[in-house]
Design a binder for these strands. Sequence first.
DNA 1: TAGATTGTTAATCGATTAACAATC
DNA 2: TAGATTGTTAATCGATTAACAATC
Lengths: 206, 206
Amino acid sequence: MAEKEIPNVIIGRLPVYLRALRHIQAQGQQTTSSQELGEMVGVSAAQIRKDLSQFGEFGKQGTGYNIAFLVDKLREILKVDRVWDVVVVGMGDMGHAIARYQGFANRGFRVVMVFDNNPALIDQKVGEFVIRDARVMVRAIHEAGIKVAMLTVPASAAQSVANQLVEAGIKAILNYAPISLNVPHGVLLQYIDPSTGLQRMTYYLD
Amino acid sequence: MAEKEIPNVIIGRLPVYLRALRHIQAQGQQTTSSQELGEMVGVSAAQIRKDLSQFGEFGKQGTGYNIAFLVDKLREILKVDRVWDVVVVGMGDMGHAIARYQGFANRGFRVVMVFDNNPALIDQKVGEFVIRDARVMVRAIHEAGIKVAMLTVPASAAQSVANQLVEAGIKAILNYAPISLNVPHGVLLQYIDPSTGLQRMTYYLD
DNA sequence: TAGATTGTTAATCGATTAACAATC
DNA sequence: TAGATTGTTAATCGATTAACAATC
């Protein structure tokens, strides 16, 4: 029997559930329901239950879900029950902000190296990091076995840097450059583009 | 006859098409096809054609789409054939980066005010802006008639600032705080959370 | 003309919702 | 026990794809 393939759209919702669960957990709540969680994240209760049921039976009839337990399960499913080393490439304002961002702690990621190709920036400090020369990037990433990268270079450089990241063995790229990238099959890609985010809303404004 | 309601999932793809079209336009190309555009953005040619056909007939059999014309149409549809004034709230590293970001030019947005509640930051300059006191925010936004906001405050403050933005008349919020927000019906919301973006990929890694 | 590519229809595929027996 | 809420099934709804006549 073939393994059941979980739809990507469901995987996309799990991090949102996890984030919301962490939030109510931090407020000391022990238990929640599909109803309550659904209201928090803007999804129907039926969908929450359906999504979670793809991975097991995590709730109890009558009482709902134990938050700590469900958080553990989601962390396991999303493979963030470990810490992924991440590189940041491009030390402009955005790369700077990302390198110093405290929000990765406890969410499964840790920035370990940052790069730029600007001689004026190389060897400068950003937060706790020393900016390294992009020319040593491929080798350094490869040697450290890093699989996850955040790309914060200008759009004009993004594709060629992405190619280098792939060459270095990176398997997941979070792209902040406002441009569609091409990567080989097997390399994952997510986009963060504020203009695109805003344009998804202006359609509905007048 | 009721106006046809365009599915939200289609609206979400249009900014990506627009971004790609701008890119090939900048390279001097005049014309493209659903095939070519689809390959650039990772969507089937049939879907590109279907999406665009919701809004009119923008192509020509045999020759495809005139890029300049299609760009104009998409800008019109997405209502970015004008410039939307935007406020940024929260002048930490991320707000700083956003306030100085050059990528909004020509994409329909212009940052016009930035706020923080930290007395040490108020009246300091960030790029071309002077950071204003969050206590005057509601009034200032209301008086300026601003409809679009970017929220870059800590998660712990995000909901209460969002409430103030709604009170001030903001209709679209791009939220960088890693937390699900509650806003009234009629207020639009998009999320930018790097951890969530990364967690959507780690599921597929090993 | 011949070749290319659109816009659209119908078929397929997939995702969401409603409903409820099971059970805590 | 009575009330609440799960996990799951079947029904509905919506989105994607394949195919092709129209036509540039």
